[in-house]
């Protein structure tokens, strides 16, 4: 098996681990925030759900380094697609916000980015494979 495939398997596993740990931590954080709305330490506590993702990002970086040149290219193109898509969407929403639609929390920015990244990966694969 290629190093690339091994690294992908490890990365895939980390995505699931992070999703599960993140959901648990997020639930905990929301409860804590409601219980102690004024505590000074709530900011550092609020960002704890990102800890599992640090490992996922690390696993992705290792995976990227082990990708062959075409897979690296496709990965970069997927990012570029998602970048353009996110920038356009947030740009457009700026106008809707101005016209009176409610502000959306930044909370929802990263799921949008993740979804566009996924679509970008699909588009890049169609182009090259």
């Amino acid at each position: 098996m290629l190093d690339q495939d091994v690294a992908k398997r490890i990365y895939d596993r980390w995505v699931w681990v992070a999703l599960i740990v993140y959901s648990g931590l997020l639930g905990g954080v929301i409860t804590v925030m409601q219980t102690y709305p004024d505590a000074a330490w709530r900011y550092p506590v609020a960002i704890t759900p990102m800890i599992p993702w640090v490992f996922t990002v690390g696993a992705y970086v290792r995976y990227f380094r082990r990708m062959d040149e075409l897979h690296q290219r496709m990965a970069l193109e997927a990012f570029a697609f998602a970048f353009a898509g996110t920038a356009l969407l947030t740009f457009t929403y700026g106008f809707l916000d101005f016209a009176g639609l409610p502000r959306i929390n930044w909370w929802f920015v990263w799921p949008v980015m993740g979804t566009l990244w996924f679509i970008g990966g699909f588009v890049a694969r169609r182009r090259w494979l």
Partner: peptide, 9 residues
Amino acid sequence: FVYGLLELA
């Protein structure tokens, strides 16, 4: 991602 969490706080 981080700012979204800080909004929660």
